[in-house]
């Protein structure tokens, strides 16, 4: 059990946690402390230096919204945003409680009365915006992967398909997905017409924009991975007369998993960056809208709050990358391969 937890930490890049665990169980305490200094001490020191430079640099700059916030001000805003979130949740709970009470009373007076359940319409909090963004990025990313991986396999296996697709890929790959945003918005408005939509239009817009930029890294890496398949293994599959499906699952996919995951990691990273920009530009709910709203709001707190968002975006991007890394490790047949 302990060994499995340690392996997990090791695989997602938290080897310092392993050292702490070993320190508690008293395995080579001296070596563990040295290890801890190397894996945790050095990065912590660097981070402290960064905070110091930030603190000193920030106090020098005076903007129209006051001083650029230093680490302390940002921390204050982080706590503030969390408090707001909690307060909003209390309000929401109270709203539903009142509503239920009212409905219960109505039903007690007249059992046939029609009761209405209304949704709480309070302003989304910072935490809500984070989850909106996460949902959007995953929707777009999954859609892109579902298109790019099969298409990449087909293009990697068939020279004709590759020759056919290559100009299209080359033409659209360098396009910033934000350039697509107006077209996506109009097309979605025209095609996605429903009285009771499952997804909000803004969500669909953002997700498709993310899809458009997540497609390319995965597609190109899958093509490279599949087409660099060892010729001997291709001959093995020919001699065995493997059918198409067996060939894909037994030979093509296992050998191209590392490249496919390299593509997926790049895609998710780019997708997350683009999503924030798309949300700012289109005013679709999410972290990007939060940043833009704070910018427009222009209070003395705004810069601090935007800084919180910047750090959150960075931290989530880091977590997403770690998530992909551990997925790659669990899917890859070669557990000893060094991935970073």
């Amino acid at each position: 059990m302990t060994a499995r937890v340690m392996n997990l930490f090791e695989s997602i890049g938290f080897s310092w946690l392993v050292s702490i665990m070993k320190l508690f169980t008293l395995q080579n305490p001296k070596e563990q402390i040295e290890n801890l200094i190397r894996t945790l001490g050095v990065p912590l020191f660097a981070f402290a230096v960064f905070l110091g430079i930030w603190h000193m640099g920030a106090s020098q700059i005076e903007t129209s919204l006051g001083k650029v916030p230093g680490p302390a001000a940002v921390w204050e805003q982080t706590v503030g945003l969390w408090e707001e979130h909690k307060a909003e949740r209390v309000k929401e709970a109270a709203f539903y409680e009142r509503q239920e009470e009212r409905n219960a009373k109505k039903l007690a007076a007249n059992p046939d009365a029609k009761v209405k359940m209304r949704d709480y319409t309070g302003k989304p909090t910072y935490i809500d915006q984070i989850f909106t963004s996460l949902k959007t990025v995953f929707a777009g990313f999954l859609l892109a992967s579902a298109i790019a991986i099969p298409l990449g396999i087909i293009c990697g296996l068939s020279n004709t398909m590759y020759t056919a697709m290559n100009p299209i890929i080359q033409l659209f790959k360098p396009v910033s997905p934000l350039a697509w945003l107006p077209i996506v918005t109009l097309v979605v408005s025209a095609l996605y017409v429903s009285d009771d939509p499952v997804f909000a239009k803004s969500f669909v817009n953002s997700a498709i924009t993310v899809t458009l930029c997540c497609l390319w890294p995965t597609l190109i890496n899958t093509i490279v991975g599949v087409s660099s398949l060892d010729n001997d293994l291709v001959n093995v599959s020919k001699v065995l007369r493997l059918n198409w499906w067996t060939k894909i699952t037994k030979i093509v996919l296992p050998s191209s998993v590392p490249m496919i995951f390299t593509g997926l990691r790049l895609s998710l990273g780019v997708g997350w960056m683009v999503l924030i920009a798309a949300e700012m530009l289109a005013q679709n709910p999410g972290l990007g809208k939060f940043v833009w709203d704070e910018f427009q709001n222009g209070s003395s707190q705004s810069l601090g709050r935007i800084m919180v968002a910047v750090l959150t975006i960075g931290f989530i991007g880091f977590l997403l990358d770690r998530l992909m890394l551990s997925l790659q490790k669990s899917f890859s047949w070669d557990k000893d391969a060094i991935v970073r």
């Binding site: 060892d230 001997d232 293994l233 001959n235 093995v236 020919k238 001699v239 065995l240 007369r241 037994k250 030979i251 296992p254 050998s255 047949w333 070669d334």
Partner: peptide, 20 residues
């Protein structure tokens, strides 16, 4: 006129699937 298992090949560099 096409490859098939009745003419099995032992390749020079083994050609085993490394993931199996």
């Amino acid at each position: 006129n096409e490859p098939g298992p009745e003419r099995a090949v032992v390749f020079q560099n083994h050609s085993l699937l490394p993931w199996l």
